[in-house]
Design a protein around this nucleic acid. Structure first.
Length: 598
RNA sequence: GGGGUGGUAGUUGAGUUGGUUACAACAACGGCCUGUCACGCCGUAGGUCGCGGGUUCGAGCCCCGUCCGCCCCGCCA
């Protein structure tokens, strides 16, 4: 029996057979998913990426039956046979459902060692083991489908962008380390013993240079690298859908992106999304949701009750207010379980994000009861009931702290209440499940107490709003807002972008705000500063996280489920055993010596 | 950098107060079974309890160190 294809070409995909194929002769190739000898018959389920089909080996052909008896999981086989229907006997959960092939010929293309774990969607093997044998894990239908959807997604993105005259342009992977932002992955080179390339954190500056080069309307599905700690939704190596356009304003970029996103929803999920997407300012998002990536699918908005509690005798409140802090509150409907145990759970969430506690009170028999109610005057209670529009049984939650902490902590609690009580889910089944919103008008700068300096909220090349130029001139940095925008889906940032600075004077002022002096600016960004002097057009763009988009579209819990070969928490590849040590010769060539750590 | 949690057969887990030969299910291997799809029945084989050290007459269990997986905070312009 040949182990090579030897003329045995498949005529059909597994799982693609239909009732209309009944009686016809077919050839299928695939992996043995399951096999069973029963009553003298051999039943073998064959799997490929389209689904599964069951092959039956009848006892009339003894040699064939004997060969089929020896088949084991994950062997690569081919079947020639006739399509018969035994629908009543085949598990309807399988995609192919009702079709069975009566085998007349069996080809074994390759045998398989006993797999280290059973390859099916209910597989309970540890992720570490599955990562080591990633190519087997990827055979599981669920992961296989994620990767297929990823491919379909990039196809649609390319099509929509090319229809809109965008050019697919590449940018270097061996680039230059940048001072701001994430830690860089550095790359040494034999030719430059004391110098390093950096892998790009994003193609940001290159795409701007394409604009200066007159190649307006750029896109790239670009790999990016950041040497920071990982999360469930963060990998050190990830993919951006990177877009840049010239002679446009914020609306133009949003329009293109909306068209792209609408196509993705329509073609991949059959969901009609209305345009334009809602807009919310950053200030409004922070005030109502506490987060710059708001989940707009449900209410429970944050409210500022500082005014009401300005004279409060409750020390926690009065102290926070005395220190330029605030008291923020949300009203949790009575339908949600807010037992003391539950409140304690949410308090832990609040504490995680820096709050000292989570105060509460419930409306019972028309008055605030329990929790901190005894510290409130009757006027204060009344005003809070009114302000939060509390209904009987509702629970008010309060965080008092600095504005930053109060908003974040309560915003996270709000989100957790919704998740925990299944007010919202992860699956995107209809337009109502898709809380899309543009967050606009970000502050251009953020003050860092720790470093006692301003940082760029997005990046140092983001343009301020024209109206805020005077504030930038007079160095009133807190008042400068950016022409920047993020697209958020269900509380997850899909991507963000901005109009860039195309004027060298504005760029200098921004560098000045960031404490980057002219010498440093020249050392780090001379090419950009040069380019800005040679007729840079007004331009701007945006970048989406492709991995996160696939994660949301497939309802995956982890970014690792939508990246074919992902890294672990420590940024290791368990399959490659990377990173790994290199030979002394390699190091010597690079002029690198490894310090033995103590 | 910090907090939490886990590592026992190929896999997933149990393992009491530190005490005889470390247990179960699934998988594997052999046999039986004429329609199964979580098939069923009988049998066989399978272990450096992550690694190193310590305490003890005796350690999977207690102590110290270390490596690795997972979740989170910081970090991620």
């Amino acid at each position: 029996m040949s182990e090579f294809l030897d003329g045995f070409k498949r005529t059909h995909h597994c799982g693609a057979l239909r009732a209309s194929d009944l009686g016809s002769e077919v050839r299928l190739v695939g992996w043995v998913q399951d096999y069973r000898n029963l009553g003298g018959f051999m039943f073998v389920v064959i799997r490929d990426r389209y689904g599964v089909t069951q092959a039956r080996f009848a006892h009339e052909n003894e040699a064939l039956l004997e060969a089929a008896n020896k088949l084991r999981a994950e062997w690569v086989i081919g079947i020639r046979g006739r399509v018969i229907s035994r629908g009543e006997n085949i598990n309807s959960k399988l995609p192919t459902g009702e079709i069975e092939v009566d085998a007349e010929e069996l080809r074994i293309f390759n045998r398989s060692a006993v797999p280290p774990f059973a390859i099916h969607d209910a597989c309970d093997a540890s992720e570490a083991l599955r990562l080591k044998y990633r190519y087997l894990d990827l055979r599981r239908p669920v992961l296989n489908k994620n990767i297929v959807l990823r491919s379909k997604m990039t196809q649609i993105i390319r099509r929509v962008l090319e229809e809109n005259d965008f050019l697919d342009l590449e940018t270097p992977m061996l680039a230059k380390s940048t001072p701001e932002g994430a830690r860089d992955y550095l790359v040494p080179s034999r030719v430059h013993p004391a110098a390093f390339y950096a892998l790009p954190q994003s193609p940001q500056l290159f795409k701007q240079l394409y604009m200066v080069a007159g190649l307006d309307r750029y896109y790239q599905i670009a790999r990016c690298f950041r040497d920071e700690d990982l999360r469930l939704d963060r990998q050190p190596e990830f993919t951006q859908i990177d877009i840049e356009m010239s002679f446009i304003e914020v609306d133009d970029i949003q329009n293109v992106c909306e068209a792209m996103i609408v196509s993705l929803f329509k073609e991949l999920l059959d969901i009609e999304i209305a345009r334009p997407f809602p807009r919310i300012t950053w200030n409004e998002a922070m005030d109502r949701y506490g987060l710059d990536a708001p989940d707009t699918r449900f209410g429970m908005h944050l409210q500022d009750v500082s005014q009401i509690l300005a004279g409060s005798e409750f020390k926690v409140f009065s102290q926070a207010l005395a220190n330029a802090g605030t008291v923020r509150a949300i009203a949790v409907p009575a339908t949600i379980n807010m037992s003391r145990k539950e409140i304690a759970y949410y308090e832990e969430i609040a504490k995680t994000y820096g709050a000292k506690g989570l105060a509460w009170a419930k409306l019972q028999d028309g008055a605030l009861n329990g929790g901190i109610s005894k510290f409130l005057s009757s006027d204060e209670s009344k005003a809070i009931i009114e302000e939060l529009a509390l209904q009987e049984g509702d629970c008010a939650l309060f965080v008092s702290d600095s504005v930053k902490i109060a908003r974040t902590a309560l915003g996270r609690v709000r989100k957790e209440i919704a998740t925990r009580n299944e007010l919202v889910g992860r699956e995107l089944k209809s337009a109502a499940d898709c809380g899309l919103v543009w967050v606009v008008d970000f502050p251009l700068f953020e003050w860092s107490d720790e470093d006692q300096r301003w940082y760029a909220t997005h990046h140092p090349f983001t343009a301020p709003r024209a109206a805020d130029w005077p504030a930038l001139e007079r160095k009133d940095y807190a008042k400068v807002y950016a022409q920047a925008y993020d697209l958020v889906l269900n509380g997850i940032e899909l991507g963000g972008g901005s109009i860039r600075i195309h004027n060298i004077d504005v760029q200098s002022k921004v560098f000045e705000a960031l404490g980057i002096d002219e010498q440093e600016a020249r050392a780090k960004f001379s090419y950009l500063l040069d380019a800005l002097q040679f007729g840079a057009p007004p331009h701007g763009g945006l970048a989406f996280g492709l991995d996160r988009l696939v994660m949301l579209f497939t309802g995956s819990e982890s970014l690792r489920d939508v990246i074919a070969f992902p890294k672990t928490n420590k940024a290791a590849d368990l399959m490659l055993d990377a990173p790994s040590e290199v030979s002394p010769e390699q190091l010597a060539e690079l002029g690198i010596e490894i310090k033995k750590s103590t």
